[in-house]
Simulated assay, not measured.
Amino acid sequence: MKIIEILKQDRPTLSFEVFPPKTSNAYESVAHATQEIAALRPDFMSVTYGAGGGTSEHTVGIAADLHQTYGVESLAHLTCVSSTKEHVANMLGKFQARGIQNVLALRGDIPEGGTPATDYHYACELVRDIKKMGDFCVGGACYPEGHVEAANKTEDIRHLKEKVDAGCEFLTTQMFFDNNILYNFLYRIREQGITVPVVAGIMPVTNVKQIKRITTMSGTYLPQRFKAIVDRFGDNPDAMKQAGVIYATEQIIDLIANGVNHVHIYTMNKPEIAAGIQASLSEILK
């Protein structure tokens, strides 16, 4: 099933992200975690794609297993900044051969010390090529706080509109920890004629290292309420995990109460995190 068909249903949806291993030696452990998360029967699961396509074969394998073995619709990530058109066509051919219908089209990060390939500069170019090369449902990323490389939020939304006009059928947000940021973002993009479904990306922060990585990479705004949780429980791993799951769950409840029906959880390959959140939403998701 194409994910746009899932998102058009008049009900809340919950989906999870997993990421492939960097080496083949770790494949079995990741596959096992993926199977446990799939057993929760989410509406769909996304599978990330390493910088420069380093995990591309694992992305294909895991996404195909989700769909064919576990009966969960999959969304395969595909980045383009370090890819050639030939490589993209090759990957899409593998997706088609394995029955993968859904692709999240991303520019991706330029590898440290590397240079991007000349075939692609922006995600909208990748979206156009995917639509030409097969009958895929194509999603894209969006940034409620603005992309770090954009001059301002107005420019960022203009580029987002270009991506949607190129054929992007739904959007998944970067993580955020203050729902008001998302509500303001949705108002701004709707004003600019972006009407595709938006899936809210939620990151349950369960340890202090995650916080440092998040703030270093994306500069994501951390509300005072969230900082207080980290200050109080950051040195107690079990308490921090519990508090992180509860904070994320409360975010989701508020989103659904305010009409944001589609939520995607960045699980960090931790089945217990996915299960804890889903259990707390059992009645809300009915």
Rank of each mutant, 00 (worst) to 15 (best):
T115W: 00
M133C: 03
R107D: 02
Q96Y: 07
R128T: 13
D109A: 01
Y122K: 02
I110N: 04
G99K: 09
I110M: 06
V138P: 02
A123H: 10
A97G: 06
F136S: 12
I110F: 03
A117D: 10
L106G: 01
A117Q: 15
Y120R: 02
D119A: 14
M133I: 00
Q96I: 00
C142F: 03
Q101N: 12
Q96F: 00
G108F: 01
R107I: 01
Y120C: 05
I110D: 03
L126E: 04
R98A: 15
M133N: 12
R107C: 00
V138M: 08
A105K: 12
C124F: 15
L126Q: 04
V138S: 05
L104K: 03
F136N: 03
E112I: 14
I100K: 07
Y122H: 14
C124L: 03
R128G: 04
V103Q: 03
L126D: 06
G114T: 08
L104Q: 09
P116K: 14
D135R: 04
K131D: 10
G134M: 08
P116A: 14
H121I: 01
E125R: 03
D129Y: 05
P111N: 11
Y143L: 03
E125S: 02
R128M: 03
E112K: 15
A97H: 09
K131W: 08
D109R: 04
N102H: 07
I110R: 11
G113I: 11
G140K: 04
A123W: 03
D109V: 04
R107Y: 00
R107M: 09
E112N: 10
C142K: 02
C142S: 14
F136K: 09
M133V: 00
G134D: 06
A141C: 06
Q96C: 01
I100Y: 02
L106F: 05
R128S: 13
D109H: 01
K131N: 13
L126S: 06
K132R: 15
A105S: 14
G140N: 09
G114S: 13
I130C: 05
I130Y: 01
D135G: 02
G114P: 10
G108T: 08
V138G: 07
R98L: 12
A105E: 10
D129Q: 15
P111H: 11
G140D: 01
Q96S: 15
Y120S: 04
I130E: 01
R107N: 03
R98C: 13
P116H: 05
G99S: 11
G99M: 12
V138H: 05
E112A: 13
A105P: 06
T115H: 09
L104N: 07
E112M: 10
N102Q: 11
N102G: 07
V138F: 07
D135M: 00
M133W: 11
